[in-house]
């Protein structure tokens, strides 16, 4: 699944880095580095990180019954 962090919003609270240190890591005192794509089975972890962010800066692929909306299947059309 894909994710992006709005780094204008990010204040470096690092809640995400505590919850999923292999995906989110502080780089220096205040910069956040993250992996923009993680395995699909991490969806629950990511949902926790999204919810824990005090400034709601993390966005992930929407969860829809039919799988990721607008993924490669759509691009091939």
């Amino acid at each position: 699944m894909r994710l992006v962090v709005d780094l204008n919003r990010c204040q470096g609270y690092a809640q995400c880095a505590f919850l999923a240190p292999d995906v989110f890591a502080m780089h220096g005192d205040e910069s956040l580095l993250y992996r923009p794509e993680v395995e699909e089975d991490r969806r629950e972890d990511m949902a926790r990180a999204v919810a824990a962010c005090p400034v709601q800066a993390i966005m992930v692929d929407a969860n829809s019954p039919g799988g990721n909306p607008g993924s490669d299947r759509e691009a091939g059309r």
Binding site: M1, R2, L3, V4, R35, P36, E37, M59, V60, D61, A62, S64, N68, P69, G70, S71
Partner: peptide, 9 residues
């Protein structure tokens, strides 16, 4: 692996 997440279909 830097694709943007889809917030909705």
């Amino acid at each position: 692996r830097t694709g943007l997440p889809r917030l909705r279909a």
